[in-house]
C-alpha cells in the first residue's frame, strides 16, 4: 500500500474525530474525538516518515504526540471532574459561562 492509502485513512479518521466532537452532547465524546484527531495525525507522521525520509523524525513526533495526548487526557479529565463538580453536568452545552 502506498502513502496515499495511509493518508486517506488518516484524513477519514480526522473527519470522524471532528464529527465526534461536534455531534454528541457529552463532554466525554469531545475527549474521544480529540484522541481520534491526534491518532490521525500520528498515522500521517509515521507514514510520511516511512515513505519519505530515512530518519526518526516522524516517529519522534509521533512519540511526542502520544505523550502530549497522555498529558492532555489527564488534564482534561481533571477539568471534567471540576466541571462536573461546578455545574453538576457534563454536557458541553451547559458549560457556557464564557459567554458572559
Amino acid at each position: 500500500m502506498g502513502v496515499g492509502a495511509y493518508v486517506a485513512v488518516s484524513a477519514a479518521l480526522f473527519a470522524l474525530g471532528v464529527v465526534c466532537i461536534i455531534a454528541r452532547r457529552n463532554i466525554l465524546y469531545v475527549l474521544m474525538g480529540i484522541e481520534m484527531i491526534l491518532n490521525a495525525a500520528n498515522i500521517n507522521f509515521v507514514a510520511f516518515n516511512r515513505f519519505g525520509g530515512d530518519g526518526l523524525d516522524g516517529r519522534m513526533f509521533a512519540i511526542f504526540t502520544i505523550i502530549l495526548a497522555a498529558a492532555e487526557a489527564a488534564v482534561a479529565l481533571a477539568i471534567v471532574l471540576n466541571v462536573f463538580h461546578l455545574f453538576d453536568s457534563i454536557k458541553p452545552s451547559d458549560v457556557d459561562l464564557m459567554r458572559e
Partner: peptide, 14 residues
C-alpha cells in the same frame, strides 16, 4: 457568535 458553547466553536473552526 460568542455563545460560549465549545462544540459550536469547533464547528466554526472546522
Amino acid at each position: 457568535f460568542q455563545t460560549g458553547r465549545i462544540q459550536q466553536y469547533v464547528t466554526f473552526a472546522v
